[in-house]
Nucleic acid binder design. Structure first.
Lengths: 174, 174
DNA sequence: CCTGAAATCATTCTGGA
DNA sequence: TCCAGAATGATTTCAGG
């Protein structure tokens, strides 16, 4: 597995979450290392898959996506799982799809232009083989969105699994 | 309002979605403009709020968040909306919270360490004033996550509103 | 993990279409 | 109004220790 994370890695992850385009020079200042060291850590974090992706959040409304909805779908997944997955991948309106417990087998977050296009979308998915039910909730507004990985929480989590050593602990082991 | 978007802006937005740390030099090459022009467009897109945020996606599992869940909450929002919002903001486990139609008034995406911490979290929110019901669905896996703004869809959307002109259209108007 | 040099990149300013 | 080129300053990468 990925080796060990320390608090400096967590700070790097935290800063990158707040500003994915932060400069190495700034990161280096924040964590107290040289620029090449920070760069190396970033590479390693990507290679380990802890950093998955750099991206940019946009205002979808301004791009013409006025409707956002959660669609809960019940799929007879034993037989139709593969074709369901293929359909999900193909539909541009489906931004995310989760397999979940509870009523229905999947939750999809859907973004579309207007009620007409949503209606079309819904009738489309209802025609997929294995889809037994759908239940749609419109998003009226988003109250909260955070990418903040509370690093004290993470630290506690990882100490449980002994994946993490603090910087001081590492030092004293040498 | 924000002025006009053209296909070059959409390409920029698309590229930044795929790689939030892409270099201006690369962007310039992709869209066929000079670096200063691309830089100017990016600034404008940020100023208009179309680009909201640069961020980094991480593998939360590797950071010790094994449990992800959707929690649907019914809140007596008329009286208790303000205190509900304050609680939502304070809880680090709540990554996102949406006001929605349908059963319950809100959907929250929650990330936490293990079932024990989820249980504590759930009993905490059930004690908030105005919270009448909760319904939790565990996330078993995420089948899809895309940031792809299909630019042909966007283009169609925006043409509806006449916000967008293609590059060629603009040229021929001069 | 650091330093220091070399290469690359971003920004600003200026003028042109 | 929007864009390109040149100069300056900042950043990143690479080598060696």
């Amino acid at each position: 597995m990925s080796g060990h994370l320390d608090l400096i890695d967590l700070k790097i992850i935290e800063s990158l979450g707040e500003n994915g385009r932060v400069r190495l020079s700034e990161l280096a200042e924040v964590v107290g290392l040289s620029i090449p060291s920070v760069s190396e850590r970033m590479d390693k974090l990507q290679k380990n898959g802890i950093i998955k992706h750099f991206t940019t959040e946009v205002d979808e409304r301004q791009l013409g996506f006025d409707i956002q909805a959660f669609v809960r779908v019940g799929v007879d997944s034993s037989k139709h799982y593969k074709s369901f997955l293929e359909h999900v991948m193909k539909e541009d309106e489906i931004m995310e799809c989760f397999s979940v417990t509870g009523e229905g087998s999947h939750i999809m977050r859907v973004m579309t232009h207007n009620t007409a296009s949503l209606e079309k979308f819904l009738s489309r998915i209802q025609s997929w083989p294995g889809v037994m039910s759908t239940n749609t909730s419109f998003v009226l507004s988003q109250l909260k969105k955070t990418r903040k990985i509370a690093s004290d929480v993470v630290r506690a989590n990882l100490q449980d699994r002994q994946v993490l050593l603090t910087y001081d602990e590492k030092k004293s082991r040498r």
